[in-house]
């Protein structure tokens, strides 16, 4: 199966919302999402947990109020983010994460129905990544960082092709779309799939996603990776995360 990508490089800015504890704005593959993180703050009685913090995720689409699809995305994000946040440090508290979708790529071949807009499944990696960046910006203790990506299996000329960061056109004609997230310890954190696919196809998708998300960060000594032509599948997410945080920490600690 050949692998191809249509995405441009990701871009991120941290601390964009001055009144929130932490915030991030992230753009990649046509999606732009802004996230705010507040916490640990006081939880409502009904959400209080005696030994852990409650993680509340709210997803707001750009147009429309959001319906069942958004709630589904919220519950997936909540269960995966709760795995990496050290919730045991803050019992009876609330970590509130709000994700606002600002831009999503348009499919120029159809007229979109927007009043009851339901979010495309392939926005999930952008939502997840923005949430992780916002958590890092807020200084909420987390077990490890994480990166996520989407892979679609698209039929082309009789064979199947894996597309990393599929465009809306790709998603429309794809047979299946998968979203995977990995922690910085190379563990699989999130795996959601839609469509018809075989186990072998999922295994290939897993390998592709792992390659995109878990590329080892080059150490100072080894410069071999510069000429490595095999790794051209999509952007190096971990490296991007690290360099974004490096800039943030350097500007925070400029005085040292």
């Amino acid at each position: 199966m050949t692998v191809s990508t249509t995405s441009t490089a990701p871009a991120a800015a941290l601390g964009v919302l001055p009144r929130a504890d932490g915030s991030a704005k992230y753009s990649h593959a046509g999606y732009t999402v802004t996230a705010s993180v507040n916490g640990p703050i006081e939880a409502q009685r009904r959400d209080e947990h005696p030994y852990e913090a409650h993680v509340d995720v709210i997803v707001r689409p750009a147009a429309g109020v959001g319906g069942t699809r958004e709630r589904h995305l919220e519950s997936i994000l909540q269960s995966s983010l709760s795995q990496i946040i050290l919730v045991k440090n803050f019992p009876r508290s609330l970590i509130q994460i709000v994700l606002q979708v600002e831009d999503s790529p348009e499919n120029d071949y159809v007229n979109t129905k927007l009043v009851q807009a339901s979010l495309n499944f392939s926005i999930m990696p952008a939502l997840f990544q923005t949430a992780v960046l916002a958590l890092l910006s807020a200084g909420v203790p987390i077990r490890a960082t994480a990166t996520a990506t989407a892979v679609a299996i698209v039929p082309q000329d009789g064979t199947k092709r894996s597309v990393v960061d599929p465009s809306p056109r790709d998603v429309e004609i794809a047979q299946s779309v998968h979203v995977l997230a990995f922690t910085s310890h190379d563990e699989l954190l999130l795996a959601e799939s839609e469509g018809d696919f075989t186990v072998k196809e999922w295994d290939d998708v897993y390998e592709t996603a792992k390659d995109v998300c878990c590329r080892p960060v080059p150490t100072k000594e080894g410069m071999e990776m510069v000429l490595d032509d095999e790794h051209t599948n999509g952007p190096d997410l971990r490296h991007f995360l690290r360099s974004t945080m490096e800039n943030k920490v350097a500007s925070d600690l400029h005085w040292k």
């Binding site: 964009v16 001055p18 732009t32 750009a62 147009a63 606002q100 600002e102 831009d103 999503s104 979109t112």
Partner: peptide, 23 residues
């Protein structure tokens, strides 16, 4: 924004985003 109809306004620290759509 990149799409037509997305306006992001900043007034000091206040930030408001408006998105227009049609159906």
């Amino acid at each position: 924004g990149d799409q037509y109809g997305v306006a992001d306004v900043t007034l000091g620290k206040t930030r408001v985003l408006a998105k227009a759509s049609a159906e």
